[in-house]
């Protein structure tokens, strides 16, 4: 649920899967001032860097993760007039096709919700302390951070 006092933000780090329509309902419930709802969901791909992938293990830094996501939402709220924000990120063992991440933003009109949703996702990628270990052909390896993700986040500063 959204805490009205705390800027209508929901952050959840969880092992369990999430339901897209339930999350959209939560963003819309008793929220008739916002006409736009933009959501992003990320899933485990079957191929990464030309290697076939069977699954992922996701680790995070409890405490810091929540703080860093709160900070990213604060930064978005400073740039755009937005209503509710939901961030869900799964941890633990995930298989190909599983949902990993959900970002939902509401605003009066679509432009701000689109921008804020993309901004939150771009910053989550480079600032939130999550790490992916990839399972491929029975072998496990930690993924390296991508320069393209760093560049995307930097683009918002220009």
């Amino acid at each position: 649920m959204y805490n009205q006092e705390k800027l209508m933000v929901k952050i959840s780090i969880q092992e369990a899967d999430f339901n897209l329509s339930e999350e959209v309902n939560l963003l819309e419930k008793l929220n008739n001032e916002d006409g736009a709802v933009v959501t992003f969901s990320g899933r485990v791909r079957n191929v990464n860097l030309d290697k076939s992938v069977s699954g992922l293990f996701l680790e995070h830094y409890p405490g810091m993760t929540e703080k860093s996501l709160e900070k990213i939402i604060e930064q978005a709220k400073q740039q755009w007039t937005i209503g509710r924000v939901t961030i869900i990120h799964r941890i633990g063992q995930l298989l190909v096709g599983d949902q990993i991440v959900f970002v939902g933003v509401t605003s009066k009109h679509r432009k701000e919700a689109f921008a804020a949703c993309e901004f939150i996702m771009d910053y989550l990628k480079v600032e939130a302390p999550f790490w992916k270990k990839e399972l491929s052909d029975g072998e496990e390896s930690w993924l390296d951070a991508k320069q393209s993700d760093k560049d995307k986040a930097k683009n918002w500063q220009s």
Binding site: G42, L58, H60, Y61, G63, M64, K67, S68, H89, I100, V101, M121, L124, K125, V126, E127, A128, P129, F130, W131, K132, W142, L143, D144, A145, K146, D149
Partner: peptide, 26 residues
């Protein structure tokens, strides 16, 4: 204390200092 900093940042008794590779979530 769960805020990203650079290596010249100050550290005091009672602080929590974490080291980790570049992040790869999302």
């Amino acid at each position: 204390n769960q805020e990203m900093v650079n290596k010249s940042h100050s550290v005091n008794t009672g602080d929590e200092v974490a080291f980790f590779p570049p992040v790869t979530g999302g």
